[in-house]
Amino acid sequence: MTTAVSILPQQQLAVLNAAYRQAVARRRLRLLLGAVIFAAALVLAAIGAEVNLRTLFTYFGNFLSYFDRILTLDNGQRVWTDVGEWFWGWRKWLKMLGETLLISYVGTLIGATFAFCLNFLAAENTSPAPWLRFVVRRLLEFARTVPGIVFALVFVIAFGLGPMAGVLAIAIHSTGALGKLFSEIVENADMKPVEGIRSTGASWLSCMRFAVVPQVTAGYASYALLRFEINVREASVMGFVGAGGIGQELVVAIRKFYYSDVSAILLTIVVTVFIIDIATGWLRGHLFGKEART
């Protein structure tokens, strides 16, 4: 089938063209303005952070040579020629790695438990009182916004050096992050079962237990697994401030220029993070189907 394209009269065409050009010009102007503001902010930031492009390029060479050095053993050979020498401390590192995983596991579980207890109070549709919701929400916000490592710094002073500070820091940060996500799931839950149960005269607690929890557990578990994945990364740096885990070994190796150790520990961490990523991804896909993965 052919359709005839009507040719507009010249006058009308000119008007339309002008309107189109004006619209495009306005958009371009706005874009240009945005670009100028952004560039100005960049220049300001560069002055603030004492950066200039020339130093960047001179240092980039150093960066590459740093990687060259961490891939070289003390005897001048490449690390992969002698894996036994490269991973000489594997017993100790594996133990620290286990500690890291344990820190993130315990931290995540404690955090998820607290978040589970608090999120019904923070969700719009289930909270028993507005003032309570406000208080719980601010608390969660605080726990979420202060970075985990700052908590760790304070806890190291209160609880002493060691993995306990790391676990508590991760637990608090996870409580904040998971509490928000959990309460969002609850807000999306279907309220009809709640009404059904309330109409039988049940208390608030049984409404939550029998109407809301069955709807939301899959989402909770999915988010908790995702959080565990994030916390493994987080726990790997907790050692920087003395809060346990493999970070302690890494920071010593980096600060004291034990080059081949740095690459060995880094590789251990990266591989572990990979495995955890893949394992939790598989577990989430397997347990909750594709739709729960997002």
Binding site: F63, Y66, I149, R233, E234, S236, V237, F240, L250, V251, I254, R255, F257, V262, L266, I269, V270, V273, F274
Partner: peptide, 13 residues
Amino acid sequence: GVDTLIWALVWIN
């Protein structure tokens, strides 16, 4: 897979 803090330590070196 490597945390920002670790990159910071490397770059400080």
